[in-house]
Every structure is written in structure tokens, then in C-alpha cells.
């Protein structure tokens, strides 16, 4: 297959065969993580800059491990204490990165479209979107796909139920695209105030009652509830949220014994998920973390290791 994606900005331009290809490649990388020496020389001499405008330990560490296992030179550039905090525009930052000879830039930014913007400004470097505002988080979606695919096989005609704050979730937006492209049916649930207006434009359906939504679900995917949402008045209290929309054992029973539980982390125990569900046998949460490293290795290798000069 010829790889046509120059950057990894969003999954909306991907075809199913491209998703499959990356899952297969991730599988090979996953194997590598079991070896005594996890480092391979594949990206020796390539410079990757991790440009983080928002604190995100998980995504950054996951990218950094992936880059290091592939022997890339890694520079972490974060907003605090750098010129970014002093009013330098993203455009200037972009040109600085290019002048430094970055082969790839991983960007995490609070503004929607920041990764697209960077990709427009950079002539040579490959841009990986590490999350832009509430818009897109493609590497999270891919690692979720991989985790689910490894566990339950083909995702065709599977049912995934996402519960929580879809409105503010970049993870939800990317996962809905990803799972839909793999042939899964996506059902959303959660308070109506945390749902986007045109759920059908995402190719999903909405069921306000999580107890009916999870029936027959192959995957229950819980989204993080940010405490600020309560302060903004999007729902009355965390307590009420947990009682109605939180994932507990009784909800899991309604779904079935083979249903897997996923969560992008970090987990708010007692809010969107009860501890015994997060730590239970149906939980894939730690598997997602491991998949993250393998998936990012696969993406970096495919986008940087190949023919493109």
C-alpha cells in the first residue's frame, strides 16, 4: 500500500485500509516492547520536537518513549518557561522549528486547528496532532482502535457506547470517526447539555439513558468529566452525574460479560467510573497505555522512516 498521509492531523481523511495498515504495523511494534532491548535504530538521525502548549504528561511521555525506542533525537519544547509563554506566535515558532531542521513536530495545543495551522506553515516537517482543543486527538483514537481490535478482533458491526462529555471531548470526536470507519456503530450517552448539537453529523446516535444505551455493547468507552463543567453549570453536581451516568458494576452487567471498558485517562474514580470497574477484569485501561507507545512508534515510523525525503 502506498502511504499518502503526510501529516497526522485528524482521521477524517483516512480510509479504512489505512487504519488497518497502521493497526498491523502497531502490532509489530507491540511485539518489540517485549524485547530486552526495546530500542531500534529505525529513526536514527531524525529530529522530533514535542511541542506542548498544554500540560499533558501521558501523551508527551508516550510520544517521547516511542521516539526514543526508534532512536530519534528528541527535543521537548513546552509552553512554560519558553518564548511561547512570552507572546511568540505559533507562526514564529513554526519557522524556528523548521530552521532547526525538525523532521517531525508533535503539537498539543488548546486551540482548535493549531495542528492544521502548523502543518500549513511547515514546508518540510511532518506534523503529528497530539490534541487540538476539543477538536481532534487522532493518536488516541488509533490507540483505542488498536486496543479494541487486539482484544475483540474485527470491529465491523460492533457496538461502542461512549458515555460522558462528548461536547468538549477531542477524544470522542476522533474515536467516533475511527470506530465508524472501521464499521462499528457508535452510540453516545450522557447529559444533553454535554452533547454536541448535530450528533448525526458525526455519524453517531444519541441515547440519553446509559442503561438502555449499553445493551448489547461490545465496548463501553467512558469520557473524562472535567470538574469545571459543574462550575459552568453544565450539570448540577458530580454526585448526580455519577449516580445517573457513572459506570458501575450494575451498568456493566446490563452490557454483558464480554463487554470491554475503555477510558482515555486519567480516570476520575467515583465520577465517570467506579473504581471496581476501572480496575476490573473487563477494563482495558492499562492496555490502552501500552498500545499508545506501540501505536505512536508505528505512526512515526510510517511517516518518517519511509520513502519521503
Amino acid at each position: 500500500m502506498e502511504w499518502k498521509q503526510r501529516h497526522v492531523l485528524d482521521l477524517d481523511t483516512w480510509k479504512r485500509e489505512e487504519l488497518h495498515y497502521i493497526l498491523e504495523q502497531t502490532s509489530s511494534m507491540d511485539e518489540l516492547l517485549d524485547r530486552p532491548i526495546k530500542k531500534v535504530p529505525a529513526l536514527r538521525g531524525k529530529l522530533v520536537v514535542n511541542l506542548f502548549f498544554e500540560p499533558s504528561t501521558r501523551t508527551r511521555v508516550s510520544f517521547e518513549l516511542a521516539e526514543k525506542f526508534l532512536s530519534a533525537d528528541v527535543v521537548n519544547w513546552s509552553a512554560s518557561g519558553s518564548s511561547i509563554g512570552k507572546g511568540e506566535t505559533l507562526r514564529d515558532t513554526a519557522w524556528t522549528l523548521e530552521a532547526m531542521g525538525a523532521d517531525a513536530v508533535v503539537i498539543r495545543h488548546g486551540a482548535v486547528g493549531a495542528a492544521d495551522y502548523l502543518a500549513r506553515k511547515l514546508k518540510k516537517s511532518v506534523v503529528f496532532n497530539g490534541g487540538d482543543g476539543a477538536h481532534s486527538h487522532p493518536t488516541q483514537a488509533l490507540l483505542d482502535l488498536y486496543t479494541a481490535w487486539k482484544k475483540i478482533g474485527s470491529l465491523e458491526r460492533k457496538k461502542i457506547v461512549m458515555i460522558g462529555d462528548v461536547l468538549h471531548s477531542r477524544v470522542a470526536r476522533s474515536d467516533i470517526i475511527g470506530f465508524s470507519k472501521m464499521g462499528s456503530r457508535v452510540v453516545l450517552s450522557g447529559p444533553p447539555t454535554l452533547m454536541p448539537r448535530s450528533v448525526d453529523a458525526l455519524g453517531a446516535t444519541y441515547d440519553p439513558d446509559p442503561r438502555s444505551a449499553v445493551k448489547g455493547a461490545d465496548i463501553i468507552y467512558l469520557l473524562r468529566i472535567q470538574r469545571e463543567r459543574q462550575d459552568e453549570g453544565m450539570f448540577p453536581s458530580l454526585d448526580e452525574y455519577h449516580q445517573i451516568f457513572g459506570a458501575n458494576e450494575s451498568l456493566l452487567k446490563l452490557a454483558g460479560a464480554d463487554t470491554i471498558v475503555m477510558h482515555p485517562g486519567p480516570v476520575n474514580r467515583g465520577v465517570e467510573i467506579a473504581s471496581n470497574v476501572a480496575d476490573g477484569s473487563q477494563s482495558m485501561i492499562l492496555g490502552q497505555v501500552r498500545s499508545g507507545v506501540a501505536l505512536r512508534m508505528a505512526l512515526l515510523f510510517v511517516c518518517l522512516g519511509g520513502v519521503r525525503q
Binding site: 482543543g133 476539543a134 477538536h135 471531548s169 470526536r173 448539537r197 448535530s198 450528533v199 453529523a201 458525526l202
Partner: peptide, 16 residues
């Protein structure tokens, strides 16, 4: 708010 509350806000994640 940044974009129309509808398809654009839903897909982009920008406030409607």
C-alpha cells in the same frame, strides 16, 4: 462561541 452551533461546532469541537 466561535462557529455556528450545528454541524460546524459538532465536528470541530469549537464552541457553538
Amino acid at each position: 462561541a466561535q462557529v455556528n452551533d450545528g454541524i460546524c461546532s459538532t465536528i470541530s469541537g469549537l464552541k457553538g
